[in-house]
Design a binder for these strands. Sequence first.
DNA 1: CGTTTTCTGGTACATTTGTACCTATTTTAG
DNA 2: CTAAAATAGGTACAAATGTACCAGAAAACG
Lengths: 181, 181
Amino acid sequence: MVTITAKGEARRIALQDAVIRVLENGGPGAVTHRAVAGEAGVPLAAATYYFASIDDLLVSALLRVTEQQVTLFTHLDGRSLTDIAVVLHDWVYLSRASAIAQYELLFLAMRRDGLRAAADLWYRALEDAIVPIVPNPRHARVVALAVDGLILRMLWRGEPGTVPEVEAALRDILQSSLGSP
Amino acid sequence: MVTITAKGEARRIALQDAVIRVLENGGPGAVTHRAVAGEAGVPLAAATYYFASIDDLLVSALLRVTEQQVTLFTHLDGRSLTDIAVVLHDWVYLSRASAIAQYELLFLAMRRDGLRAAADLWYRALEDAIVPIVPNPRHARVVALAVDGLILRMLWRGEPGTVPEVEAALRDILQSSLGSP
DNA sequence: CGTTTTCTGGTACATTTGTACCTATTTTAG
DNA sequence: CTAAAATAGGTACAAATGTACCAGAAAACG
């Protein structure tokens, strides 16, 4: 019978989180069984025990951050623009490792079919979070594209760097498609 | 005295191009001296001779695609929207390796200072190509963000996949900021 | 209780990697 | 033409990596 112990699950999660941290520091190339095990503070065999291949490790860890971000974005329904700016700002700058890992996922998904579903989830969540704010679906799509580009720019340049600046950028993006609200 | 032979330069370029192809197939992790040398059809020692470290190889190859793309985008000045759509479409789908490498560059630039300048070049070229089309600078910034997001989506999803569809997407993006042309 | 499965932690090994080194050969400069 | 520099191509080796294996501890379960 297949039983899942709580302790085992905790270690699995610890390993997934370690992958994210390794990803932030050294990029996808640095994600090795040994590096992840060391980061998680578990012996090497634990990493190979819970995740047979290095791919399992990547897929699992990146599915995890995707889930986290999807829930983060789906809870933005009735929020104000300032609240959204705070969420975006905190995600990019305070959870930078997750944010970077998230986009590394998108690129891995270009090559690995196992990640397609996760990447799709991300795109859908982004659009779903925007649709209630921008009723016109065609405009919503454009806004989603611009927000995607904005996140990339924040990750790379560090600007806009403050919550008010992020809010201003979001306002600029939305204003261009709010001619008929 | 430092002399640069034409033959040597040709091999250097062949190696840079090989990096791009390896990057497309296997991602950054697959870029090894041996893989690149094999892809370029030169012995291993040639790769280590022209590029001391693997980092030199990456930086050099990615600077190359950046240059190519920058010249591609800066020549769009007076072109029609259809022409721009063709350029974008062909770049993403026909030079897919270059396009992917280009974005891998942006991610590597998050971690390596040696790539900051190249990544900056790319962002600047994208904005400079848009400014003549969208006079209002604030709107131009939003359009640049949306185009960036559009490229990402094309790379990942393969849609919009045809030139007319790309043109339609561009038109949607521009329309939102063309209230006063 | 015992036993069956799950987990732990350690070690070993073949493979791949970066890199250094060496000797011919070709190209350039004077 | 000659000497020097640049390039070519081969090989060797230490380090790192994925992965398999094993014996013992802990937990689950009848």
